[in-house]
Design a protein around this nucleic acid. Structure first.
Lengths: 102, 102
DNA sequence: TTGTTAGTTTGAGAACTATCGAAATGTTTG
DNA sequence: CAAACATTTCGATAGTTCTCAAACTAACAA
């Protein structure tokens, strides 16, 4: 495994290493599966997520940026609201990484 | 996913979130595969690992403790030397975690 | 015993992180 | 335009992490 890959993977793990951030990611994952079933994308309101986790809006905003910069999610704006989506390629990369090792 | 599982998984990811520690883990993984092929366990000398990574013995010692407390590896002593082994169950847990999601 | 080897512990400093409250930004609604 | 809304940015703080050098322990060797 190339050194740059190790660095990249460590950043992915870093992004999932915080309990709240992992929970946030899992929520998004769950939502995106629901939405796929419904054939549409999902609006992920920070307000909704805040009511699930016990942290404030600035922290959520921070965590989303971390997930995004690790390449786990993509975000865009729709009016006032933020739309988040999981990047499926990264999920496949990680799954492949561990499948090869175990 | 139960809250306790989220916490547990976040600790596993935490353990792999440092570049040097991930590299260390991958080295051990590689060694343990070689050893499986040879039908014996492997002696993991810190001195050897130090020459690959660019950090000192105290840091390696610290990283090994992190990997151990996250449940990724087990260690024991053989004379002066430390023997490390990957805990296969954790590898399976992680693989299952991502396989289910992607 | 004296010295060497393999690794650990301690203590400290620099860097990073998670979180918050307050203020700011941009968007829609009345 | 003004108010309400959703999110972001800023500044601060408390806590964590990585790393090293120095000192230490335990096992082996001469």
């Amino acid at each position: 495994m190339a050194a740059s890959d190790v660095t990249r993977m460590s950043k992915v793990f870093r992004a999932l290493s915080n309990k709240n951030r992992l929970q946030l990611f899992l929520n998004l994952l769950e939502e995106s599966r629901l939405d796929l079933a419904k054939g549409r994308t999902h609006d992920c309101f920070l307000a909704t997520i805040i009511s699930n986790l016990r942290i404030g809006a600035p922290s959520i905003s921070h965590h989303l940026r971390e997930l995004e910069s690790a390449g786990l999610i993509e975000t865009s704006k729709e009016g006032k609201q933020l739309v988040c989506s999981i990047r499926p390629q990264v999920m496949k990369d990680i799954a492949a990484f561990f499948a090869a090792k175990s």
